[in-house]
Design a protein around this nucleic acid. Structure first.
Lengths: 144, 144
DNA sequence: ATTACATGTAATTAAAATAGTTACATGTAA
DNA sequence: TTACATGTAACTATTTTAATTACATGTAAT
């Protein structure tokens, strides 16, 4: 199964907040770009806020980034929106048969392998910042 | 969400077929080590067979590996059991707003980033063989 | 203070995937 | 023909996602 699109939407939101920094990025504004329900966006805003990526206040319209674009990696967003738990990209069947040499060892043998695969994937996310994303969009729009 | 445990179970099955190569690895035998239903194992056996990793025949008890252990990577198993589709480890929201500069570009901008993260993860799987798994279990069992 | 409007959040829903279970058709060998 | 294995379909419960509705809470302007 695929990793939730919350991650892609989180990147979308943060990118748009940046490009709209002269304006007001309310949940309604953001939702109309993502093409979803404002409540979905507000839930994501809550997660991004909890992770310290944006500043939002009840009653006050609009979200602002709390850091420079170049200081926010895709990994930060990935962690913020909670799409994959630490060490749990892959799931391992529980309760294999302890009376079998394979059954009683398979979990311990496989786990570190799965973890390194997950870490390799996350390393790529750590090496991309939202600045890269915004620049790429700017290029595609012939803004620069 | 996590990647299906079919992957871990697939590794378990293949490892056990190898370590039990003197005996008969029927779906019932395998299921008792995995601790699940024989029909679940048979479905996985079908997938592993379709990918050419094992040989199984209707009516004849037991599965056999078709290759050397060192010629089967975790990536082969991962592909066989169909847990993640190509380029689809991460899902991207569809139909963002084309009237917004971010909406109309975000998918194309994000996709290659997601793909490289997926490939990095898969590269780790390509570099581990079932021989590594079996050796690790042997070590833990003090077999060698 | 009241109004208008935003965020915060809970409850509900439909769709999709997982993992297990049962049942039975099909295939093979003794 | 019998015994037993694989192949496969149908059904279930559980979980997650994503969308939706509704409303409480918070803020600012009139």
């Amino acid at each position: 199964m695929s990793i939730s699109s919350r991650f892609a939407v989180g990147i979308h939101i943060l990118t748009l907040i940046e490009l709209n920094k002269e304006g007001v990025s309310s949940s309604e504004f953001l939702s109309s770009s993502v093409n979803t329900n404002p409540a979905v966006i507000r839930k994501l805003m809550g997660m991004l806020k909890k992770s310290g990526l944006i500043e939002v206040r009840p009653g006050i319209a609009g979200a602002k980034l709390t850091k420079e674009l170049s200081d926010i990696t895709l990994f930060d967003v990935y962690m913020a929106v909670n799409v994959v738990q630490e060490k749990e990209l892959f799931s391992i069947h529980d309760s294999p048969n302890p009376d079998c040499p394979v059954g009683r060892n398979i979990q311990n043998t496989i786990e570190p392998l799965f973890i390194s695969a997950q870490i390799a994937m996350e390393k790529v996310l750590r090496n991309v910042t939202l600045e890269d994303v915004v620049k790429d969009i700017a290029t595609k729009e012939n803004i620069c």
